[in-house]
Amino acid sequence: MAATTSADRGREVRRRLLAAATGLIAERGWPGVSTRVLAERAGVAPGLVHYHFASLQALLTEAAIGVLRGLTDGLTPLLNQAGTPEEALDLLLGSLASHTGHDPVSLVFTETYLAATRDEELRRAVGGVLADFRRELARWLGEHEVESPAETAAVLAAAVDGVLLHRALDPGLTAETVAPVLRRTLTKAGRRTS
């Protein structure tokens, strides 16, 4: 068995801190996370929080952006499975089925969006995640001859975000109820003609 190095231990502490931050953001909300509570949840000394991260805010940001990236990065393979824009929409909305608005990912998503309204650095980081997703979606829509792919991607991304945010208040806002409405934006009338 190989000996654990100092770098390995440092990576493990960072991983535990990020996991603890993600859980606490979902449970307590962004402002409810303190260095002491975070360190206790991660099972480390409070001083290690600031040893591994520039600030508590930097740690929370990295944890939250990791959740958002995981969510959006998981959508790209769905696009690659779809043959038509309508199928892509159905797959994107279907991927939200496990997000009730009260699950940890939904709560981190909601808390992060709210915190981003008050923190410029976080706003830029969230904006970067959104821009990457919109760019990928626009590329895919353009390849499938949807008119105005960048604008369509922006609206569809906002709609998907909105469904995720609203689901906590309206559990009936399912893919089955939303898809027919959004599908109209992707009909043949919205496609380029040769």
Results as ranks from 00 to 15, higher is better:
Y51K: 11
E176L: 09
R184Y: 07
T117A: 15
A131Q: 12
R118K: 14
S55D: 11
G32R: 11
G162W: 03
L89W: 01
W30D: 12
H99A: 00
E143S: 08
D119E: 15
G66D: 06
Y113F: 12
G127F: 00
P77D: 08
V126K: 07
V44R: 13
P180R: 09
R167N: 10
L24C: 07
H99Q: 05
E151N: 13
R123Y: 02
L56F: 12
H50P: 10
S6Y: 05
L186A: 04
L89H: 04
I65P: 07
T193K: 07
W30A: 11
G142V: 00
A82K: 03
E120D: 14
P46M: 01
G74W: 00
D8H: 07
E111D: 11
N80E: 15
A19T: 09
Y113P: 03
R36D: 14
A2T: 02
D8W: 02
R118Q: 15
R139E: 15
S55A: 11
A82R: 05
L165N: 14
A63R: 04
E176T: 12
L156G: 06
G29D: 07
V67R: 07
E145C: 04
R9I: 04
L165R: 14
H52V: 10
E121Y: 09
T187E: 15
L89S: 06
A153Y: 02
D170G: 06
P77Q: 06
V129I: 04
H50I: 02
A97M: 01
L93H: 08
T117F: 05
T187R: 13
L79G: 11
G66E: 04
D73E: 05
R124K: 04
A157K: 02
R124S: 06
R9E: 14
A158K: 03
L38T: 12
R11A: 15
V126Q: 08
N80L: 11
A39Q: 10
A150R: 12
T5H: 10
G10V: 02
G162M: 07
R135K: 08
E176H: 11
P77W: 03
L71M: 00
G94L: 03
V126W: 03
L173F: 07
L169I: 09
L38V: 10
T117C: 11
K188L: 06
E87N: 02
L75W: 08
A42T: 14
S34I: 07
E121L: 10
L164R: 12
V126G: 06
A26C: 05
A64F: 00
A131N: 09
M1I: 05
Y51W: 04
L38H: 13
V108Y: 13
A131R: 13
R16Y: 03
G32Q: 10
A42V: 12
A150G: 05
S98G: 03
E62I: 01
G83W: 01
A179C: 05
R36S: 15
L96M: 11
A26S: 10
Y113W: 06
H144T: 05
A82M: 02
A3G: 07
T72F: 00
A125L: 01
H50A: 06
A2H: 00
L71S: 00
T152M: 09
A159G: 08
R184Q: 15
F133V: 02
A138P: 08
L164S: 09
S6C: 04
